[in-house]
């Protein structure tokens, strides 16, 4: 194992903590405190998923694991962000934060590694995670859209209407004396 990966493992806790902090900072200030502080996994699912998801994803990265293995952990995080108030770039942007955080955390020990090819590998791996993130985001959005279509179909309103089983609202008379609520 080369020195860079060793440094990642050595600084694992601080990197993960800062990454988590930075990701939670993307939520509104007054909420991010709750999301960071509440340790109750049932009361604070957003905080829990981010805390767990990022730690697991980082461990796979530091282990030089297959990038694809991070999918379920990124999914935990991105699945939420896909339905929260984030644009696509905001929803997966937290992955790129990792590059800066890693550099900040290990730079004092990493001077002599400046030319190591491992940097390129790390870079590529994080980019790979971000690309995966895009896939996950898109899958979630497609899911939402298909659910939306399904909801409409499920009501089978139109089918019933066509078969003249229900009164269409357009055909009902108005209440003439319009009693005010």
């Amino acid at each position: 194992m080369s020195a860079l990966w060793g440094l990642l493992k050595k600084n694992r806790d601080s990197i993960v903590a800062i990454w988590r902090e930075a990701t939670l900072d993307t939520y509104p200030t007054d909420a991010s405190n709750f999301l960071k502080k509440s340790k109750d996994p049932f009361h604070n699912p957003v905080g829990k998923r981010i805390t767990q998801g990022l730690a697991e994803a980082f461990d796979i990265l530091a282990d030089q694991g297959e990038t694809a293995r991070v999918t379920p952990f990124l999914d935990d995080v991105i699945r939420m962000r896909a339905v929260q108030d984030f644009s696509p770039s905001q929803a997966i942007g937290f992955i790129f934060l990792l590059k800066g955080i890693i550099w900040e955390q290990i730079k004092k020990d990493a001077e002599k590694l400046a030319d190591s090819p491992d940097w390129r590998e790390l870079d590529a791996k994080i980019d790979g995670m971000a690309l995966l993130g895009m896939d996950i985001y898109n899958t979630c959005k497609e899911k939402i859209y298909s659910m939306r279509v399904h909801e409409v179909k499920n009501q089978c309103y139109n089918a019933l209407k066509k078969s003249n089983l229900i009164v269409a609202i357009e055909d009902m008379p108005d209440d003439q004396d319009g009693s005010l609520q």
């Binding site: 993307t26 108030d85 905001q90 942007g93 934060l97 590059k99 800066g100 400046a114 940097w119």
Partner: peptide, 21 residues
């Protein structure tokens, strides 16, 4: 990888900051 990295981070952070005013 060099000193530009923190700048990248700032850039991204500015994109995803969604702070309550």
């Amino acid at each position: 990888m060099s000193d530009e990295v923190p700048k990248t981070q700032d850039l991204i952070k500015s994109i995803i900051a969604n702070k309550t005013p």
